[in-house]
């Protein structure tokens, strides 16, 4: 991929890495910036005559549309619910807008819509409004979905990178890399051994359990989607003005995912997840939060992976199995070989 094409949007701008951050900060915030948007959290929390409303939107473009463990429809529902849940909101309703390419098989659209319906019903969050546009062949790739969502934030809940303090514990709800490696190998038609499945699922029940377990003790929640756990932690650390330290051995990776990553030369830390959540909690609350996470279906594999430290702001380090400390850097885009 070309890296030196000034003035053009590159795939790197959608990677969730530094290029994406630059685009958001350098372009969108310049034109659209306001105190709520500037927070760059998963959703915005609006104060509406005393009540607090969380509001978020997300566009979904995934190839292939269907993959083991999910599809674009389920992803669009779960992703937006999760963005609300990460701010502590109880999701209330969703919207869905479709951009369809001329010639798309109706059966495909039917399957996607059915999956969305099922996902919304299972989550208990209805799609209450929507829109459809059809564009000429080639102007879009089959099917794009944009969902938006609103939710209500209970009184007293305040979550975000700005609340993070040195000493806080970093908790993770389960294995990483499942979604990213599944979609990548499916897209390429690469059949690998072992069961690879996306982890897409709604996290609002897990988030509610976390908040109930330690009111005030939870400082931030994030779903490590694009850019994976690594980019999520780097961004949280940077915005918190603190450093983070995680234990390599504590971060769970399914053996099939690890094997696929080794073969592909990928680092699971940078792979997308669609049903996992990072919780940053006060040290005193960590045990209770972890127990509450483990008591939910989607957080059964929850573990403590590290802590927030007073190191250089934005720095994320990983204690390796052999006792070294590795820097986990944010990447500009897709990883490029560095070994000379």
């Amino acid at each position: 991929m070309k890296r030196d094409t000034p003035g053009r949007i590159l795939l790197d701008h959608g990677s969730g890495g530094l290029a994406a951050r630059e685009l958001v900060r350098g372009l969108f915030l310049r034109h659209l910036g306001n105190p709520l948007l500037d927070e760059l959290e998963d959703s915005a929390v609006l104060d509406l005559a005393g009540g607090r409303l969380a509001f978020t939107t997300d566009g979904y473009v995934v190839d292939p549309l269907f993959f083991p463990g999910g599809d674009i429809g389920a992803l669009a529902i779960h992703g937006t619910i999760n963005d609300l849940a990460m701010r502590g909101a109880a999701p209330a309703a969703l919207s869905a807008a479709f951009v369809l390419e001329e010639g798309l098989e109706t059966a495909v659209l039917d399957r996607v819509a059915a999956s969305m319906g099922a996902a919304a019903a299972a989550a208990g969050v209805p799609v209450v409004t929507g829109d459809t546009k059809v564009v000429p062949r080639g102007a879009a790739d089959r099917l794009f979905v944009t969902t938006a969502g609103v939710g209500v934030v209970p009184a007293g809940v305040r979550l975000g990178a700005a609340c993070i303090r040195p000493g806080d514990r970093i908790l993770l709800s389960g294995t990483i890399g499942d979604h990213g490696v599944t979609v990548l190998t499916r897209r390429a038609g690469l059949a690998l051994e072992g069961d690879l499945r996306s982890d897409t699922r709604p996290l609002h029940r897990l988030a509610a359990a976390v908040l109930a377990a330690a009111p005030g003790g939870v400082h931030a929640m994030r779903d490590p989607t694009r850019g994976g756990l690594a980019e999520t932690l780097c961004e949280l650390a940077e915005r918190a003005g603190a450093a983070m330290e995680i234990e390599e051995a504590a971060v769970p990776v399914r053996p099939a995912v690890r094997a696929a990553c080794e073969l592909l030369g990928l680092d699971p830390l940078y792979l997308a997840n669609e049903g996992k959540c990072v919780v940053v909690a006060e040290p005193g609350a960590a045990e209770a939060v972890l127990a509450a996470m483990r008591a939910t279906a989607e957080g059964r594999g929850a573990v403590a992976i590290g802590r927030v430290t007073e190191g250089p702001p934005g720095r994320v380090e990983m204690r390796t199995a052999v006792g070294g400390r590795r820097i986990v850097p944010p990447l500009a885009g897709d990883p490029l070989p560095r070994i000379c």
């Binding site: 990548l184 390429a188 038609g189 690469l190 690998l192 051994e193 073969l263 592909l264 030369g265 990928l266 490029l336 070989p337 000379c340």
Partner: peptide, 24 residues
């Protein structure tokens, strides 16, 4: 053999297989 086949496939698909002129 499975790993070899998968890596050959990666090269065919251009998946995680950047082009290089590396002498090393």
């Amino acid at each position: 053999a499975g790993s070899r086949a998968a890596v050959l496939r990666m090269m065919e698909l251009g998946l995680q297989a950047p082009a290089t002129t590396s002498a090393g």
